[in-house]
Amino acid sequence: MMPAADPALPLVTIVAICHNHAPFLREALDSILAQTYPQVQVLLVDNASTDGSAAILQEYADCNPMWQLQLHPQNIGLCRAFNEAYRSSGGEFLIDFATDDVLLPDRIARQVAFFQQLPATAGMVYSNAELIDEQGRHLRYHIRQRHGKPFPAPTSGWVFAEVLRRYFISTPTMMMRRTTLDELHGYDETLYYEDFDFWVRASRHWQFYFLDTVTTRKRQHGRAMSRGAYRPGDPHLLSTLTICHKAWALCQTEEERDALAIRVRWEMRQAARWGSYGAAAAYFALLQQTGRVTMLDQLVGRAAWLLSRLQGKTW
């Protein structure tokens, strides 16, 4: 049972989004109930699950009258599902919680306390995560040690260029400031997924800060949205390309353009590696736009262009 509310503390909204998470759902919802922080609003959202998840969510909502439940008869996509809940919420801070993950009991308390030490320009706090398998067994930590140093190395402050250059944020650990989401008008509902786009748009005008602790257990399993990334037909491909074009428009310095070129080059090569040649050719076109094309990029990009046409799969 969660502690009694304390109106002197800032309200934190948890938007708990479920799609066919029945095997993991009770553990996820119990981790919300186990939070030590008292001022929490819980919005449960089911995105047209077919595995009995809706009944579990209804059970928890019935036992916790302050929790709000929305059952979507059709899958409206993660971004829209989050936005609808966020727009009806009241939290000063928000957590986008996938219900196959687990919150550690002091997650919210520690992140709110950390936020309160930060400048008003801090738009998001993130932390380390423990990666677990379907049975909840430890796999590794998101931020590990390599040659005696954290890897991937966390970054705090103005991180726009770093967000473009590399992946270092564990999405499930994020706590977002409401004002930041308001400024962005929430997630982009035209996209298949949310995190990279949020990082790009938010970090242009807001600072991100790393809290050096494990706050979340992130589950790795075969039904996760990202498991098919880069394969032909995977919806992540078009969304990532769209975000990279957005990022190009937001770049202001040569360092930022260099960082984006590193990202686009990586995306192009991964798409080509997995046979998504139309996507690889589209990334190559953006890389050409940046003016940062190497000889190897030329070989990969032109081969992808040719193979995409032989397959009849152009973008």
Rank of each mutant, 00 (worst) to 15 (best):
A129M: 06
M225V: 14
S127V: 10
D195R: 04
G228P: 10
L164K: 01
D234C: 06
G228L: 11
S239A: 13
P235M: 02
L139R: 11
Q135N: 15
Q135C: 12
A249S: 14
F151R: 11
D133F: 10
E130Q: 15
Y141S: 14
S239F: 08
A202Y: 04
T213A: 15
A129H: 03
R231T: 11
C244H: 07
C244P: 00
D212G: 00
D182M: 07
L131P: 03
L184F: 06
A202D: 05
S170Q: 13
D212S: 03
S226M: 10
D195M: 04
Y126C: 08
S226C: 04
V200F: 02
A161P: 03
T215M: 07
R137A: 08
R223Q: 08
R204A: 07
S127Q: 10
P235N: 03
I143S: 03
H142W: 09
G222W: 09
R217H: 10
R227T: 12
R144F: 04
C251G: 06
C251V: 06
C244W: 02
F196P: 00
L237A: 07
T155N: 02
W199R: 05
P232V: 06
C244T: 04
D188A: 01
L250F: 13
V214W: 07
Y141R: 15
S170H: 06
R219T: 13
M174I: 12
L139V: 12
H245V: 12
I143P: 00
E134Q: 14
A224R: 03
P172G: 06
D234P: 00
L181T: 02
L238F: 15
L211T: 07
Y187S: 09
F198Y: 10
R178V: 03
T213G: 12
T216Y: 15
Y167N: 00
P235L: 01
M174R: 12
P152Y: 02
Y187T: 10
Q135L: 14
W199H: 06
R201C: 05
I132L: 05
G186E: 09
Q207W: 09
L237E: 04
T155Y: 03
D133L: 09
W206N: 05
F160D: 01
Y230D: 07
R204G: 02
T240C: 06
G222Y: 10
V159M: 01
G228I: 10
L237W: 01
R219W: 09
R137T: 05
R177C: 04
S226N: 10
H221S: 09
Q145M: 11
W206M: 02
R227L: 09
M225L: 14
T171P: 04
A247E: 05
R165A: 11
G148D: 02
R137Q: 11
G228K: 13
N128R: 12
R166P: 01
F160W: 01
A153E: 15
I132W: 05
M174N: 13
M175K: 12
K246V: 08
T173W: 11
L181N: 00
R178S: 03
M225I: 13
P172C: 02
Y193K: 12
H245M: 09
L211V: 09
R227C: 09
R201A: 07
A153Y: 14
T155F: 02
L250K: 08
V159I: 10
D182W: 01
T240I: 10
Q220L: 15
T180M: 14
R165N: 07
W248I: 05
A229I: 12
P150H: 11
T190L: 08
G228Y: 13
L164D: 01
T155W: 03
A229P: 00
L139K: 11
H138W: 12
D212W: 00
